[in-house]
Design a protein around this nucleic acid. Sequence first.
DNA 1: AGCATGCTTCGTCCAACAACGAAGCATGCA
DNA 2: TGCATGCTTCGTTGTTGGACGAAGCATGCT
Lengths: 202, 202
Amino acid sequence: MQPDISVVAGLIGDRARSRMLLALMSGKALTATELALDADITAQTASVHLAKLTEAGLLRFSKQGRHKYFRLSHADVAQLLENLLNITAGAIEPDIHTGPADAELRLARVCYDHMAGELGVALFQALKQHGLVTNSPDAPEMTEKGQIFFADVGFKADLRAGKRPVCRNCLDWSERRDHLAGQLGQWILNPKTKESFRFIIF
Amino acid sequence: MQPDISVVAGLIGDRARSRMLLALMSGKALTATELALDADITAQTASVHLAKLTEAGLLRFSKQGRHKYFRLSHADVAQLLENLLNITAGAIEPDIHTGPADAELRLARVCYDHMAGELGVALFQALKQHGLVTNSPDAPEMTEKGQIFFADVGFKADLRAGKRPVCRNCLDWSERRDHLAGQLGQWILNPKTKESFRFIIF
DNA sequence: AGCATGCTTCGTCCAACAACGAAGCATGCA
DNA sequence: TGCATGCTTCGTTGTTGGACGAAGCATGCT
């Protein structure tokens, strides 16, 4: 037997739950009430939704005092959501008149743990243009120059098998062009080194 | 506003519909009744399910006589399903006792339009070992040697922007290791050239 | 023409489940 | 020790939608 897709899909297939999941795509951990507000439902219903999502392994939480902070359990989940976004965004191709709130979202947003939107796409372009990652039709890869550059500013890739790829291209649902995901994408958004670090590549 | 994920997810989130979609992951086009049998439902219910799936853009069909052949509308959809398979397969990690029917499925199967299962993984290994595609931690890429080799046997990549990548790695839900997808993966399973063509790389 | 096959439409029934009010636990703060 | 805040559990209600029988409409075969 194949695994049963329908349970996970069914969980996402609810308006309130999907909104909560998308809210967590920002990468920030949010409390149950914040998520309830975002999904426009009461705290009670949010509670059972969140319980289901965590039990299914899509979310994990950490308690802090009387607050319960939820986040996506894994990058896989974010990728799945991104995948869904792309498919549905592609379906409504003739993009309906987009408001100003949209414009902001399209300019810059965070896609789980890396940068997306116009800015994310531009950054990716710049990295390729400066030869730090390859400009391949498939997935990007760090060039030698890139390895030196990023090692120099403190980036350390985890090359063990089973880990997420260092570079991954991620199709932007708003821009319909790639931006950079993977370990490097995450690190650029949130470098772990203390030393100040600036891109002067634009 | 972000696109509404929940409609597509909700469509997949039904047992019968998900089974039909997975049946179409074989890459073969199937008739409505075949899909109904596979999903263990009557023809009537299958009809409305299939109508919903096509209207949402997940399926497309072609009529041949009194038969209606359905297939996945696009490689994107297959990728989404594969994504879901991986997440749910990962969740039930301690793999429950698998029957003999499973063993067959694990040995060799088709993942939408390319080879998967043990055989798919082995093929991918061989391609890397013989230096036809790169053995990078991220996505594979054709080597020069590979470009010559595959051009020689009639493979022609479509490098236009917006097309699917030439090489893509695809995590196998049964093997938990990568196999080869993308244009090359598709072509290997189903080369368009008439000339006979054999891999002697095992 | 007649019949079989494949798919669809209609009407009805039934189960699943999202939603909320109300009440109940915790935790933190004064 | 109170009180406020955040989250959960319970019971109820209402709606959604999946399922099938029956009938209808095409298409193809003889």
